[in-house]
Amino acid sequence: MEIPLINKLITTNGFGLRSWDDRYSKGVRVCVAPNSYMLEEVESASDDGDLDMIPSTEFLLSQDWLPFAIGKDFIHALQELENRLNALPVEQIDRASNWSNSVHEVLEHLKEVASSGNNNFKELSNNFEKTWI
């Protein structure tokens, strides 16, 4: 299996990768982010109780440009993530890109919503160049 875009983000751009088994038996989750400490927020959001987990997970999977994926196993999840990344313009697979900045902004929003406990997520744009609707 080849995953050159994930490899580039981690090896060349200092992104972090996190993977875990979904506690609701949906498969294996995998994600990358410009700052690895933010990935703990993603895992925590997907492991919360139903009332918090469902809106958080729907938010993170709502747009194909976000680097979050679920697969039936680890290899499948990595391939799903690679497929999402492959849909982006190649110049965006970089720490200093608009896409990377938008991913960071989305993760900061996830952290804010999680700490507020209100599940009031902003609506994401289907284009990373304009993060919010």
Rank of each mutant, 00 (worst) to 15 (best):
F68G: 02
V30E: 08
T57P: 01
N35V: 14
H104A: 07
T11N: 10
L66W: 07
N119F: 07
F74M: 04
N13S: 04
P55E: 04
A45W: 11
L107H: 00
E91D: 05
E82G: 09
L9W: 03
V42E: 05
L61H: 13
D64A: 10
E43I: 13
T11H: 06
F68L: 13
E58H: 08
K8I: 00
G14D: 06
N13C: 09
Q92K: 01
H76N: 15
R84S: 02
L110R: 01
R18V: 08
L9V: 06
N86I: 03
D64R: 06
P89N: 08
N35L: 12
A87Q: 09
Q63M: 07
L39C: 09
G117T: 08
E105I: 04
P67F: 10
K111R: 15
V113F: 06
A45D: 03
E41N: 08
I54M: 05
K26L: 15
R18F: 12
G71Q: 04
V113Q: 02
L51H: 11
L78M: 14
N86Y: 08
D48R: 12
T11S: 14
E80Q: 15
P67V: 07
N7P: 02
H76T: 15
M38D: 10
V32F: 07
M53A: 06
S115W: 05
Y24T: 13
S115T: 11
V90C: 00
N83V: 02
I10K: 10
H109I: 04
S25D: 11
R84Q: 09
H76I: 05
E58S: 13
L51Q: 09
L81G: 01
R23K: 05
I70P: 00
V28S: 12
F68I: 13
P55S: 04
S36Q: 06
A77H: 02
N83M: 06
L110V: 04
L78P: 03
F68Q: 06
N86K: 09
S44W: 00
E108Y: 04
A96P: 00
I70M: 07
R23N: 13
I54H: 03
S25H: 11
N101F: 14
S97H: 08
S36C: 05
G117S: 02
N7V: 02
L107S: 01
N13Y: 11
H76A: 13
D73Q: 14
W20D: 03
V106M: 01
I10C: 12
D94R: 11
